[in-house]
Nucleic acid binder design. Structure first.
Lengths: 116, 116
DNA sequence: AGAGGTCGCTAGGAAAAACAGAGCGACGCC
DNA sequence: GGCGTCGCTCTGTTTTTCCTAGCGACCTCT
């Protein structure tokens, strides 16, 4: 082996693997994204991400909650409901998501040519 | 609060959806990550991401190349080979990946307490 | 009261993606 | 000639994701 190898497993890759353990799942990144805009209920989430089904959303929410990224709180108000919000850990991901969105706008082929 | 609604579909979410069209796939984020450390060959990629099979890697590479994120170049040297490298578009994702790795190290439960 | 809609969430079966393993033609090594 | 590597594709099986339907409880409309 020559000394060229940049491709040795470094901490960076390990952390990246952890990150993509969540973000690599089909909708996890999206729900984190809409949640970063503020707390939301189950139905609100479903609409915001658009195209996800109840089963999957429920799964992702449970998963995210278990990982400590989102918090599930039951609203005792007259109209009983459930709210999902980002924990500090999840909230610290927001700026990254923001950058990601910026990158996508510049480097990804626009799927919908919005006339604006 | 009347003007609370943060959950309307804004450009941010649309861009995020584009981004996760790629990063939401099981290995795309990882190969982008190792590629951000420098060009690599098919085999090098396979080792670096660790746990991916030839079929899937081939698919992801084709997909990423089609999207204009990575560039496939055939090496005419005596030991004929193929090299994959990030395009400018792909390279601009590197800092984001870096932040993501940083976030993961701080906010994600360490799965393997690496001695090193 | 009766009928219908929404809410949060779960269950079952179907489709898709990912997987592991083998193989192809061409190369260098011994 | 035998062997391993390279980049890449094919086949059959497992995991993941998806769609459809449904539950109990609440609210609204009539």
């Amino acid at each position: 082996m020559a000394d060229d190898a940049q491709h040795e497993p470094r901490a960076c890759d390990a952390a990246l693997a952890q990150a993509f353990g969540f973000l690599g799942k089909r909708w996890n990144g999206m729900v984190l994204g809409v949640l970063s805009g503020g707390p939301a209920s189950f139905s609100e989430l479903r609409r915001a991400v658009g195209g996800i089904s109840d089963s999957v959303l429920s799964d992702r929410l449970t998963e995210l909650a278990t990982a400590g990224l989102v918090l599930r709180s039951v609203d005792d108000g007259p109209p009983v409901g459930v709210s999902y919000a980002l924990t500090p850990a999840g909230r610290s991901l927001t700026p990254v998501l923001d950058q990601l969105a910026g990158w996508a706008q510049q480097n990804l082929p626009p799927r919908c040519s919005s006339a604006g």
